[in-house]
């Protein structure tokens, strides 16, 4: 598969947008402007960018507690995200959901999800629905390495394969289930081998290489759209920050600084920037322009969130049920 220069640049733009958004959250969280929990995606950008670039606007994703990257890659608006993270009424969920629950049905975001493994059966349902409705929409379900130990993973893959549903299961193997290393939470190294049990293709890719991710997901999406069923794709990657921003010293209780530094050398964003420059896809100036534009958008989002109001007290009782 040949990825065009324009596409490569677009992939980079999405990855950089995620990186800079998350970098800004580090700062805003430390200053107390983002309440609650913030599970950041820094280091894993290639997975969301590569996968979502294989989708159409009307395709679906289910995301995770570490979902900012997925929803940005699927086209979420930064200002609505930022307002939601601030708990403001102008946010995606009117301030009722926060970081872990961003959803937008119009662009196929069926929700980030606070429960590990919670999204897989929902993705299966979206797949069934597309099949029943006779559309060729595809659903990508993102989940982590440790979620692959949950029953929902096995139940979801079994059901999807049984009914040949248009679902792509994208496992972000960032090596840790919160503080527990993969070696301590499962006896296997490659989660993709579990695909065999459910009679579907299982693929391992370098999750820090956006091209590999994009190629694998594109192939799986094509197969899904053709009615040939689901695929399991495991993306090996690493989270740079702690499990969430409250995790002391980026998770130093359970991993070494050296380990983090080793993975930072494989920075997916820097890696692509270097490739773009080496292959003369873009000039350094164009990359700087891109960064400046994204930073401007992020500052606009922060300003929007700051200026927005918190929900009124009455809103506590709104949207518990659909009225009428």
């Amino acid at each position: 598969m040949k990825i065009s220069k324009g596409k490569l640049f677009d992939l980079y733009a999405v990855m950089l947008k995620i990186r800079l958004f998350e970098d800004r959250i580090v700062d805003l969280y430390a200053r107390g402007l983002v309440p609650g929990l913030a599970h950041l995606y820094i280091g894993e950008e290639a997975v969301a960018a590569g996968a979502c670039a294989a989708l159409r606007d009307d395709d679906y994703i289910t995301s995770t507690h570490r979902g900012h990257g997925h929803v940005i890659a699927k086209g979420a608006e930064l200002k609505l995200m930022m307002a939601e993270l601030f708990g403001k009424k102008t946010g995606y969920c009117k301030g009722k959901g926060g970081s872990m629950h961003i959803a937008d049905m119009k662009i196929g975001i069926l929700g980030a999800n606070g429960i590990a493994g919670g999204g897989l059966p929902i993705a299966v349902g979206a797949g069934l629905s597309a099949k029943w409705r006779g559309t060729d929409q595809v659903t990508v379900s993102f989940f982590g390495d440790d979620a692959s130990n949950n029953g929902t993973f096995h139940e979801g893959l079994n059901f999807a394969s049984l009914h040949k549903l248009p679902v792509v299961f994208v496992c972000e193997n960032n090596q840790y289930g919160i503080s527990v290393h993969q070696k301590q939470h499962q006896p296997i190294t490659d989660i993709a081998i579990r695909a065999t049990s459910y009679d579907m293709p299982g693929v391992v890719v370098d999750g820090n290489d956006v091209i590999q991710v994009h190629e694998a997901v594109t192939k799986a999406v094509r197969r899904a759209r053709a009615g040939e069923g689901p695929t399991l794709i495991e993306c090996k990657t690493y989270r740079w920050r702690g499990h969430h921003e409250g995790d002391p010293n980026q998770g130093s209780r359970y991993r070494t600084k050296q380990e983090i530094e080793e993975w930072k050398k494989k920075d997916p964003v820097k890696r692509l920037a270097e490739k773009l420059l080496a292959d003369k896809v873009v000039t350094k100036k164009k990359l700087e322009e891109l960064e400046a534009n994204i930073l401007k958008e992020i500052e606009g989002a922060v300003a929007f969130a700051n200026e927005s109001k918190f929900p009124s007290q009455e809103e506590l009782y709104e949207d518990v049920y659909v009225e009428g």
Binding site: Y60, P121, G125, L128, S129
Partner: peptide, 28 residues
Amino acid sequence: DKRVIDTPISEAAFVGASVGAALTGMRP
């Protein structure tokens, strides 16, 4: 059998799938 589906003994899968299907326009 497209509309009356015998499921595996897999409640999280078929109840979760019902949630996903409802969210995307069906009435399971």
